[in-house]
Structures are given as structure tokens and as C-alpha cells.
Computed example of a mutant assay.
Amino acid sequence: MQTLYRRLLSILPRIGVKVVDLGPGTALVFRRGERTVAPVGRGADLVARGKARYTVTDAGTDTWVVARAAAGRSVTSVPLGPTGARLLLDGAVPADGEREFQLAASHYLCAQHVAALLELNGVNCVFDVGANTGQYGKGLRRFGYTGRIVSFEPVSDTFAKLRRSAENDPDWHVYNFALGREEAVQSIHVDWKSMNSLLPPSEYGKERYRRFAKGRTEEIEVRRLDDVMQKALEGIEDPRPYLKMDTQGFDMEVFAGAGERISEFVGLQSEVAALRLYEGSPAMGEAVAAYEAAGFGVTGMYPVTRDPATGRVVEFDCVMVRAPEPGGPAAT
């Protein structure tokens, strides 16, 4: 026998009121348009305007992601260990996009790791050497770093973009020169996008990147890090600097230019090469050994690029902090 409730629902459409039955004792009534119902979890429904189809993906306890479904599209929810966090993957990404995804994830994890280290070690000035257009500085701000940033970018066109990135940030200082082992005027290879370098490409580099076959050179000023530190740290009562280097094969030259003042840095980050893209750049083992000899210990290694043919890592972001003295207290 039909209940009064059910009979009422059957009558409503006759007087121009539309009905969507949502289950025992629950219904949606409306006058105009169409509605789509998508089940969400147990005993819950999503009601949306129109006739579009939606996908619902479990994203943890009592949490779902609802997306308008495109043809063949699906979303996969992957738990990240016991952290409670989940990664949502668009199922439409082709299998050959896995490597690109891995590198993007590595970049994110590296930035998050660095932000945590800066806070843990009380860093109040980051030397951003090889700043390009300011991507690194912007990333620091997104992850909550509020201290001083001092960026160095020698290429004139790129520096103009860096200056615009920093113009509304009063504690982000920018300089239009390179850092190296000694003061000089040198030629830098430009028009290689973010890979401009003071070094020529290696044979492997020429095979890996077509851009190295083109480009031009530009005369730039090179200065020593220990000569610019006093001005860069001016006004900071108790400086605790961190050195980030991304100079396309020139990081060891920047490091050498710090001289004895490298002991003032509480940590560093360097792009080290497992496969050398630039002629004359140090091998990864050589670079890491030099940093360790200066008192730094590795806290993370994050792939930056991979060889598409072999899957081998070309470069890593190597993150380090000053190691404690033997028998001394742990680094903070």
C-alpha cells in the first residue's frame, strides 16, 4: 500500500513541481531546471544543477572530492603512508606522464623540506644564487619564510623579470651580477631558457638539449660571495644565512668564492650533477665531498631532471645543514 508521502510525491509533478527522490523519507522538490544526483559516501547525496555527470572520489575519513566528469576521466586517491594525507591523481594522465609527475612531486617535497629546515635552524637570510626570474624566492614566501632573501642573477633580460618579482617585497634584495671564485668580467651563454651558464655544454648536454646548439653570449660581472656578504646581511642583528646555488654547473665556483665565511652559513642547497650537462662542471661525488669537508651534512637529495631514454637522474637538488662538531651538541 502506497504511503501518503509517496502519493504526494507522485502528485507534485502534475502541478509543475519537479521531484528527485533521495531515499526513504527524503526528497528534493523544485520548479525549474534539472538536477543531477550523485551518491557521496554512505547515506549522503550530492545534488547539482543540470544534467552533468559527476565523479566522487574518497579522499579520507568523511571526505570526498566531487568533480564534473569528462569522457573517460577518473580520479584516483592514493594514501601517503600513515600521514593522513592523500594524493589525488587524474586518471586521464597518460602512463608516460609518470616521470613528469615524479619530478613535480620531488620539487614540491624539496621546497617543503627546505622551508622546514629554515625554520628549524632560525635562518634569517637566504642567499639565492642563480635566481633566474625569482621562482625560488616566490616559493620560499609561499612556504612561509619571512626573512630576508638576497638574489643574484647576471643576465640582463632575466634580471629585469627578477626585479619585477621582488619589487613589492621590501626584504627581497636583488643584484645584477654573478658570483664566482674571483672578480672578473666573463661571457655567459644566454637564450638557453632557465639553463644559461658560464660553462659550455658537454657532449651529453648537446645530445640532451637542442637549445644548446643556439643562443649567444653576454658579458657579465662576476664577484666573490665573501665580498658581498657584509652588505647583504646589513641590519640583521644575529645573521643565520643559508646558501642556495643553482648556477648550471658553476656552484663549486660560487662556493669557493665564500672563502672562510662559508663557516657562517647554517645550511646550503646545491644542484649536483650525476650526468654532467656542462663541460668542466664537477661530478656529484666531488661536489658533495667538498661541501662535507666544509662541515655540511646531507639532509635530502631530490631529483631535478631525468634522462628520458634511460630514466637515470641527471641532476639532484642536494640539501645540507652544518653538521655538529665531533663530541659537540647536535645542530639546531
Rank of each mutant, 00 (worst) to 15 (best):
A131Y: 03
L268K: 03
G91K: 07
V254C: 07
N121R: 09
P201I: 02
D58S: 15
K214S: 15
T310K: 01
V174D: 06
G16E: 05
L120D: 10
R164P: 14
R148S: 05
R142A: 15
K231G: 09
L87W: 15
Y54K: 05
R164F: 08
A59E: 10
W192S: 08
E237M: 00
V321M: 00
T158H: 02
E100S: 11
P303C: 05
L89Y: 13
T299E: 07
A293M: 00
L118A: 12
K231W: 06
P170A: 01
R163W: 03
F177G: 06
P282A: 04
P154L: 00
L233R: 03
V20L: 14
R306M: 15
T63L: 10
Q248F: 03
F30R: 02
A294N: 08
V155L: 06
R35P: 04
A48F: 00
S187I: 08
P239D: 02
G147K: 11
A48L: 09
V174T: 10
S281R: 10
R224L: 04
G328N: 03
I15Q: 10
T133G: 01
V319D: 04
V190N: 12
D169S: 04
N196T: 00
S151M: 02
T26H: 12
N132E: 13
E167Y: 10
V304L: 11
L87S: 11
T217R: 00
K214Y: 15
L140G: 14
E119K: 12
E34D: 13
S281V: 06
G137N: 00
A111W: 10
E286T: 11
R163G: 10
R208E: 06
T26F: 14
R208W: 08
A289N: 12
A287Q: 09
T55L: 11
A116N: 13
I188A: 08
A160I: 07
T3Y: 05
N176W: 06
R306Q: 14
V150L: 07
L198D: 06
V304T: 11
A273M: 05
V150H: 01
G249Y: 05
C318F: 06
R6K: 03
V155D: 10
